[in-house]
Amino acid sequence: MRNNLFSYNLVDTPIHRLSGLTKLIAFLFLTFAVMFSYDIRVILAVMAFSFWVLRVSQIKFSQIRLMVIYVIIFLATNAIITYLFSPEEGVAIYGTRHEIFHIAGRYSLTQEQLLYQTTKFLKYSSVIPLGIIFLLTTNPSEFASALNRVGVNYKAAYAVSLTLRYFPDIQREYVDISLAQQARGLEMSKKAKLRDRFKNALLIIIPLIFSTLDRIEDISNAMDLRGFGKHKKRTWYNSKSLKKADFLAILISALIFTATVMVSVFINKSRFYNPFI
């Protein structure tokens, strides 16, 4: 089978047992914590914590390999571009300049820049395990009910969960259409020029759009016939009521968040940790 980008995996772990709502709140707390802080010590601590949770939830590397590769490419590109556009950003932030060596023109490597970029890289990459945990341990429909319970309109929440539900179908259909079009002579391999490949991709996407529209009509009829949208609210078959473990998880993530803010306010007196002064 094809490896999907997001595939909820059903194993029974303490993390899976938490309610979707808990996981959403904890995810938001921890994400805000690492987004807020530029203290590499704090970020490393959160990162270590999230890797531990990743282990507990029994997610295998093979499941997330594709996602990890994409993210690393993205972050590496981001780091290079940041350096190209503002090689002295670190110096401006920390207010000192410790040059390690000079490269060329206005580009030289400083300790400040190195710390700044490493911090930023870790900051972003520590969000990844959190996101992976959330997506892979939350049943997509529970995900919708969680969104609904933090205030998102249930129709919008359901749209999200239906997208997750039909994503694999559409992916499969894309492959089928693409093969049938290739059998008519469409060249999608590297032999074709980039411009032609783009044009050819359109020949696959157009039938895909039409058959997806048919599907949408079917599903919206089915939903109307079963009373979707009748009331302002709805209940959820899959909503788990919050248990002790849920409150504990929310408490821990809230504490981590508060601790991060405290570190910034009282120890660093800024969002940045500055070892250079």
Binding site: S141, S161, R165, I219, A222, R226, G227, Y237
Partner: peptide
């Protein structure tokens, strides 16, 4: 096309969910 839930149980419950 009319399978809206992610599991059999949820799909069966769909009308009840909408009825709160």
């Amino acid at each position: 096309g009319q399978f809206v839930g992610l599991t059999v149980a949820e799909d069966i419950a769909f009308a009840l969910e909408n009825d709160m």
